[in-house]
């Protein structure tokens, strides 16, 4: 017998992400359902329309208050204002739309009694949760990136660096992932969609609006105490403790993290680190709040995602 030479193993070709997304039936099903009808396009149109109106409003207000013409400084302020407001609007959109998209992802399967059917197929629970997450992210990224051209108008006026655009987009992406994972988490631990949605909205609003309020209240209460401690006996430990707490609180809110990072960028010219001095510790670098924010939220997202997978794959006992 003659031996036939086996063909040399070929390296598996890495397929594009879109093709791999299509491998997960849940992604395809969710996107089909979401993009069917007018709803998705109406939301997209209204969202882009609102942001356009916001940009136009800023432009008109600047033009009407500067009859003679723009100075380079005014143009830069206008650029920064447009950029900041668009980011703010995107953040608002994420907090408003994401819980609605993901808080019913698992619980609605339970309610329409399809979860049991899926669990008896060969589809792993992890793929179900991943599919729900990916399909929500695809739609939200579409909304986010649809606003990028409007955000880029700021570049026409100056005052905004490319790095700021990259970082703000990265923060928005991280926030989107975190809110999606939170929605999935509530959807997997709560059986009904309504309470799950309420919890997801409470979580996002608490994080966006409740936390700054808490920080403000805490600062108002603590500053006199800290000042007394610092000035009365050069209590460096108390000062350092205060700095760490304040830094962490600032770093768990996207608004505060973005604003404080921007302040340090303008003040110290560094995107990644800010130099601080407390007592004997002088000129030590502290990571900019946006970095801490992204790390914390990515870790939290991962944990919430893993819990959701665990809840879906868990057998009833």
């Amino acid at each position: 017998m003659t031996e036939t030479a086996l063909p040399a193993p070929t390296k598996a070709k890495r397929r594009p992400i879109w093709s791999r997304l299509r491998d997960n039936p849940v992604v395809l099903k969710e996107l089909r359902s979401r993009m069917r009808g007018n709803r998705a396009f109406i939301i997209l149109t209204v969202y882009v329309g609102l942001i356009s109106a916001l940009v136009a409003l800023v432009y008109i207000s600047f033009v009407s208050s500067n009859d003679i013409g723009f100075s380079p400084d005014t143009r830069q302020i206008m650029g920064k204002t447009i950029f900041g407001l668009v980011v703010l609007a995107q953040l608002g959109m994420i907090s408003f739309v994401t819980p609605g998209l993901t808080a019913g992802a698992i619980s609605s399967e339970r309610e329409r009694q399809t979860l049991d059917l899926l669990r008896t197929t060969l589809l792993p629970g992890r793929s179900l949760v991943r599919g729900k997450l990916q399909s929500a992210l695809v739609y939200l990224f579409l909304l986010l990136f649809a606003a990028l051209p409007l955000q880029s108008i700021a570049f026409l006026f100056g005052g905004v660096e490319l790095a700021e655009l990259v970082i703000s987009t990265f923060m928005l992406v991280v926030t989107t992932i975190a809110f999606c994972c939170a929605g999935l988490f509530f959807s997997s631990i709560v059986k009904r969609t309504l309470p799950s949605t309420v919890l997801a909205y409470a979580f996002s609003n608490m994080l966006l609006f409740g936390l700054p309020f808490m920080v403000l209240t805490l600062m108002t209460m603590l500053i006199p105490i800290i000042e007394q401690a610092v000035f009365s006996g050069s209590n460096e430990i108390a000062e350092l403790f205060f700095l760490v707490i304040a830094w962490l609180l600032v770093s768990v809110n996207p608004f505060l993290a973005a604003i404080v990072s921007e302040v340090f960028l303008i003040d110290q010219g560094d995107l990644f680190f800010s130099v601080q001095s407390v007592g004997p510790f002088s000129n030590f670098p502290v990571p900019s709040p946006w970095i801490i924010y992204c790390i914390i939220f990515l870790v939290v997202s991962f944990i919430l995602y893993q819990i959701s997978v665990g809840m879906v794959t868990r057998k009833e006992v």
Binding site: R112, T114, D116, L117
Partner: peptide, 20 residues
């Protein structure tokens, strides 16, 4: 029943085929 009401009949079977 356990059906997705927003799906077409063929899509329903196609989806579960993909799940298998």
């Amino acid at each position: 029943f356990g059906v997705y009401n927003d799906m077409m009949t063929w899509e329903y079977l196609d989806f579960f085929g993909a799940c298998y």
